[in-house]
Design a protein around this nucleic acid. Sequence first.
DNA 1: GCTTGACCTAGAGTGACTCCAATAGGCTAC
DNA 2: GTAGCCTATTGGAGTCACTCTAGGTCAAGC
Lengths: 125, 125
Amino acid sequence: MRINEASARSGLTQDTIRFYEKSGMLAPIRRDARGWRVFNADDINWLTTLERLRTTGMPLDDVKRFAMSAHAPNRDAAEERAKRLALLEKHAVTLAHRQAELEACKHFLDHKIGIYRTSLEVTHG
Amino acid sequence: MRINEASARSGLTQDTIRFYEKSGMLAPIRRDARGWRVFNADDINWLTTLERLRTTGMPLDDVKRFAMSAHAPNRDAAEERAKRLALLEKHAVTLAHRQAELEACKHFLDHKIGIYRTSLEVTHG
DNA sequence: GCTTGACCTAGAGTGACTCCAATAGGCTAC
DNA sequence: GTAGCCTATTGGAGTCACTCTAGGTCAAGC
């Protein structure tokens, strides 16, 4: 499939996909006779993984490390897999913190909204 | 209090506070004889509110709108308060989406971690 | 044969900070 | 009283992660 469909399936924009390729975060993408990128199912899986890591706020440098390890010649060696696991575990902790933070802010926001609502009701009542 | 303490209390860096002031998101901050900013309790409350809105991802343009309304001459008019309430409500919806998204990504991440863990256990076992 | 449309590239622009260099006033230590 | 240090000040450059623009190729449709 071409970049348009790859974008739709992965949730990344075409620009972002090109940017990730340039940054070395993708296994080399095949090209057709015209020079257009041709994506296969594995590519889409990989793009989707990157999208999820980024959506949850993993910094690009860490995503790059993850990509390097996943595309290393010995990528199936226990050592490389342990490296990727460590990155994911570290990220899971960050994500949990972020979720707690958002939850706290949500309470703050709900509280503010409550204040505005009652004050406006009083005005109109 | 000075910018150092304002930063510690609000959770914003000194640079960010200066940046917000320059961008017109703060009521004019008093200065002492040396030209240093002097913050009072209201300033800190306001900074904290901004911090929370930004932490939850409200774009600066919306925060600016919120600030404009809060510092408008008729800021206590029902009209202005309704404007701010609308901004907060819109943002609450965005935040709820974001939380759902993070939750979905968390499952993805936990699943991946599970796969890596079992594969490494097998290797070592 | 000409337009349209999906793609290509390099490079500039954006949002929201974040860091840096140069400057200045005030406190303590000699 | 002056040297060093601390906390500020400013304008402007740098960073991250895209996002957009300009200009170009090529196959297909009218």
